[in-house]
Every structure is written in structure tokens, then in C-alpha cells.
Design a protein around this nucleic acid. Structure first.
Length: 443
RNA sequence: GGAGAGAUGGCAGAGUGGUUGAAUGCACCGCACUCGAAAUGCGGCAUGGGGGCAACUCCAUCGGGGGUUCGAAUCCCUCUCUCUCCGCCA
């Protein structure tokens, strides 16, 4: 959400920056025309209100002096405003809504170091600040070398009898899965491992948030008004609640409509939650297996920071997500998303793409974004700077998956598969699996 | 689900139709006093939006929205949230 005053002062920069965004045709002049209309209404309304207030004050004085004639005279004078003021107030509300609606569908402006591009082919691999392929290779696991034809995760899981899409279809339709036995336990182990990592080593506070949220929260994190069709809603009284598409929604909205002390920042929150997505726009994509589900678990990280620290926090959060894959020994790469692939609210996004031998490709397993004050404005989330009394400022928000649990399960199964159909358990997960070193295989 | 109470500035808490954007206390900031501190005294201290080169000024905001009125923190309607009691229930 943009500040119209900023757009007015930086119209050319706004136009140049917003035109980098795919499919956006709005220009500053369109928005400023609405704002001109708004200001014009405000000026005329304020004049009328000022006059009314002054006269009303005099009426009060006249009545206090028991000068009824004078009071009546003044009341007659103010009567002429009775039509204009309510109309002016209605006009002001209408034009402010018009402006808000226009502003709320404009995506965030991206940083200069975000590459231009029309789709995911424009993304650029990233190796960290001052990083290179060589430095990255030192900390990341290499691509696994398998001496046999690797299977896809659903082949492995179905062969074990512990990944059941048919039963899920009976219960809920397509894009659902039933996990059973050791695969179910492995999924749980992965989630616990990630959550423990972020809470004990990365300074995040564990949160169990509501999974159903109101429209206002969804507006704050940009799901509304533009992406309503991606969400599941459930009726609630006269209204409705949405199933969260990501824990980013409740975690980020922790600070909505509030002013936090600078000393409380950065606020770092993490949660392991189910996520629900209608996948309305992706019919036919990734239909096999559990890559793209209506329901999946994800560990989410959210940071609330000052404006000065958000860019560093972004790199830090990326490192937190990378640590998950490093500890699990999974090969991956990091992509700096281009203007054609980056999300609506982000100023910059890193995707972590994990290697899937069964698919012979990299697939997204985490997305780490810095949003600047974009969401903070939508939520009215501010902080009071420390030191001398200063006016509140908008916080900056960041979110990142740390990581998607379902997709991580896929990655573990495909990367650690053995020729006999079993799956080795990465060392980091063994404590969560009762110490066993493999699941499935010949029994 | 039923009955009732409530929501006021960073916090606590007055205020029930007229010069109240809001008493008082706490917290915070500045100044004075002090070697320094405490205590004390004096002053300052909400947010958003207009207009103005500026000094400054106007408008709105007492949970949200709507209404009554010349005028609303105060009256009415409605929504949200909190609390108490009763019922039901994991």
C-alpha cells in the first residue's frame, strides 16, 4: 500500500518503478487525479465545518446568557450548512475509498537489485553477499549420485503403502493426501526439527496462531483484495473466516493497528501450521504426488523490524532457511526472483529450490521476502523510535518459509531413497524418529 | 445459546449535550535547584488529514460504523472486542 503523498512527491520515480512490474498499467497521474478530487472536497468541507463550529460555539454562549433571540438568529444562520456538510462528508468518504481501492491493488516496488524478467526464467541464482558458486558449494550438500534410476516421491511412498492419494480422494477430492505409518512420522519429524532449529538457534519465538482469520488480516498481508480466489472461506455468522494460506497472515498481523516500542524489535516469530490454498489458477499443474496440495504443513518465519535493519534481516532469514536444508544434507540453489516472478507485496524475494532426483529438477521449498513498509501501511503497524520522544514510524515486515514441510518430505524421500525402495533418515532427523536410520524397503 | 457490565491519550483513570482534544496521577522529555543524584518546582508531551513560503491555522478522531442535534466522549442504532453469571460442550 502506497502513501499518496510519497507518490505526489515522487511521481516520476513511481512511474519508472511501477512500470517494472508485470501487467501493471497504473500511473501516478491516475492516482493524483483522485487525490486532487479528494483535496478539493476536503477544503470545501473544512470551511463549512469551521463555520458551523464557530457558530455553534456562539449559540452555546448565547444560551448560557439566556439570550434566546440571539441563539435563534444564529441557528437560522447555520441552517444553510445542514445540507452541505453531510453531503461533503459522504463525498469525502467515497473519494477516500476510491483512493484506497486504487492504491490497494498496486504491487510493491522492487529493489534495484531485483532482476528484470517476464517469468521464472528471468530469476538469477544467488550465492549470498560476497558469495560465489565456490563459497556456496562449501556449505551446501552436492547433488546426490544415485547408482539406480531414482523414483519420484509418490512412487516410493505408494510402494511403502504409506502415502495414499486414493483414500484422500475419497475423503476430500484431488490435491489431498493421506500419510500413514513411518511416512506420517517422518513428516512430523521434519516439522519438529525445523521448529526446534528456529526456536533454539535462530532466536524465533514459537507461536500457535489461529488458522482461521478475518478479512482485515488478509488485507494486511496482501491476500485481499486481489487474490481472494486463492483462499478457502468458511461462513461465520453473518460474515466469514478464511483458512490461512500461510502462517504469514496471523504472524505478521500480530502487530496490526499497534505501536510497538523499538526495544521490542526485531520481533521474530515462527509457527508450524497447516496451510490451505484453493490452487484455483493452477488446474492441471503438478497433479501427481503431493507437490501442490490444498492442505500442507509449513514452518513460517516472520520478522518485524525497523526500516534500517530490514535488508540485513532478509539475508539473515535466508540463512535461517538455508540452515534447514544444510542440516538435512539436501542439495539446493537460491534464486533472486525477477520482476516477472516476484510476489505482490515483496520488495525482494529469495526462493530456495531443492533438488529432486525423481523429478530431475529443482523445486521451490522456501520463499523469503522483504516487504518494506508495504504491509505495515495496510495494517497500520508502527513502532515508536527509542530515545527522545519521536513520532511513530511504520515497521518493516519480512516473511519466509523455513521451510515447507510437505515439500521437504518429498525432498528427503527422493534424495535419500535406496535401491531397495527404502528411505534413509538424515542424521538430523534420527532423534525425531526414535533413532531409526531408514524406513520402508524390503520387509 | 440466555442475562448483564464495559471499551477514553504510552499506562491508570475522571468526565453524561455547549469555549473538553479531553481533569488528575504515573511514565517520558526539557529547565531550575544540587558537587552529583533523589526529592521538589516550572514547562512540555496524542494521531491522522487540509491550507500557508513561513509564523501559524483549520478539520477529524474518546473501540469501528451509522444516526439525532445549531452543537456529541456524553443521547439513539449497529458492529467488533473484553469481562461476569447461567446453560450447553471438546
Amino acid at each position: 500500500m502506497f502513501d499518496i503523498k510519497w507518490i505526489r512527491a515522487n511521481a516520476e520515480a513511481f512511474d519508472a518503478a511501477v512500470s517494472r512490474r508485470k501487467g501493471i498499467s497504473v500511473r501516478a497521474s491516475d492516482l493524483l487525479a483522485i487525490d486532487d478530487k479528494r483535496r478539493d472536497i476536503i477544503v470545501r468541507l473544512n470551511e463549512a465545518q469551521e463555520k458551523r463550529n464557530a457558530l455553534s460555539k456562539q449559540i452555546g454562549q448565547a444560551k448560557a446568557q439566556k439570550d434566546e433571540a440571539r441563539a435563534q438568529e444564529l441557528m437560522a444562520e447555520v441552517a444553510g450548512l445542514k445540507e452541505f456538510i453531510p453531503q461533503g462528508e459522504a463525498d469525502e468518504r467515497a473519494v477516500e475509498l476510491e483512493l484506497r481501492n486504487a492504491l490497494s491493488v498496486i504491487p510493491n516496488l522492487v529493489f534495484d537489485d531485483v532482476p528484470d524478467g517476464t517469468d521464472e526464467t528471468g530469476n538469477v541464482e544467488y550465492f549470498g553477499r560476497n558469495g560465489s558458486p565456490e563459497t556456496a558449494a562449501k556449505v551446501r550438500a552436492p547433488k546426490p549420485v544415485l547408482s539406480f534410476a531414482p523414483k519420484e516421491h509418490y512412487e516410493i511412498g505408494e510402494a511403502m503403502g504409506q502415502m495414499d492419494f486414493e483414500t484422500a480422494a475419497k475423503l476430500s477430492g484431488s490435491r489431498f493426501v493421506v500419510l500413514k505409518g513411518q511416512v506420517a512420522r517422518l513428516e512430523r519429524a521434519i516439522g519438529q526439527f525445523m521448529l526446534d532449529l528456529h526456536t533454539t538457534e535462530h532466536g524465533y519465538t514459537e507461536v500457535q496462531p489461529p488458522l482461521l482469520v478475518r478479512d482485515e488480516a488478509l488485507f494486511g498481508t496482501n491476500q485481499l483484495p486481489k487474490f481472494e480466489e486463492d483462499l478457502f472461506f468458511t461462513p461465520h455468522g453473518e460474515s466469514r473466516l478464511a483458512l490461512i494460506p500461510t502462517a504469514e497472515v496471523p504472524l505478521t498481523n500480530f502487530v496490526r493497528e499497534s505501536i510497538v516500542a523499538e526495544e521490542e524489535l526485531p520481533l521474530r516469530l515462527t509457527a508450524l501450521t497447516p496451510c490451505f490454498r484453493s490452487e484455483a489458477g493452477s488446474a492441471g499443474r503438478d497433479t501427481r504426488g503431493m507437490l501442490r496440495q490444498h492442505q500442507f504443513n509449513k514452518v513460517e518465519m516472520v520478522s518485524i523490524t525497523t526500516p534500517e535493519t530490514s535488508v540485513d534481516e532478509h539475508e539473515r532469514m535466508l540463512a535461517c532457511a538455508e540452515t534447514v536444508l544444510q542440516r538435512l544434507g539436501l542439495h539446493y540453489r537460491v534464486m533472486n526472483l525477477c520482476t516477472g516472478d516476484i510476489g505482490f507485496g515483496a520488495k525482494k524475494t529469495y526462493d530456495l529450490e531443492v533438488w529432486l532426483p525423481g523429478q530431475d529438477t529443482y523445486r521451490e521449498i522456501s520463499s523469503v521476502s522483504v516487504c518494506g513498509d508495504f504491509q505495515a501501511r495496510r495494517m497500520d503497524a508502527r513502532y515508536r523510535p527509542a530515545g527522545e520522544k519521536q513520532a511513530p514510524r511504520f515497521v518493516h515486515t519480512l516473511n519466509g518459509s523455513g521451510t515447507a514441510v510437505g515439500r521437504c518430505l518429498i525432498a528427503v524421500m527422493e534424495n535419500y531413497q535406496q535401491e531397495d525402495g527404502s528411505v534413509a533418515i538424515p542424521k538430523a532427523l534420527q532423534p525425531y524418529m526414535g533413532g531409526i536410520k531408514a524406513i520402508g524397503g524390503r520387509r
